[in-house]
């Protein structure tokens, strides 16, 4: 079964942290205040972050 993971367009991410707040698995961090980063091992591809992101820069992509 293909697994979907959140992918962030790091160039347009504003590092606001909305995604980090809604992530039920705490898979997202903003370590240097520049852009959000997804821990692929933790991400379950629920898409909550993509829905919340005010910049709409998060997409769900299939990763094998």
């Amino acid at each position: 079964m293909p697994k979907r993971k959140a992918v962030i367009d790091t160039r347009t991410c504003v590092a606001c942290g909305c995604c980090m707040k809604v992530c039920p698995r705490s898979a997202i961090t903003i370590p240097r205040g520049i852009c959000a980063e997804v821990d692929v091992a933790l991400c379950v591809g629920c898409g909550k972050c993509a829905q919340e992101c005010p910049t709409s820069v998060i997409t769900l992509e299939v990763k094998e």
Binding site: V14, A15, C16, C18, R32, G33, I34, E52, C53, P54, T55, S56
Partner: peptide, 21 residues
């Protein structure tokens, strides 16, 4: 738009991101 759309163009947010960069 989205609830926290202000964050996209918030001057403080832009400035702190620049500082972090």
């Amino acid at each position: 738009f989205k609830p926290r759309s202000w964050c996209v163009y918030c001057p403080m947010g832009t400035m702190t991101q620049l500082i972090c960069r």
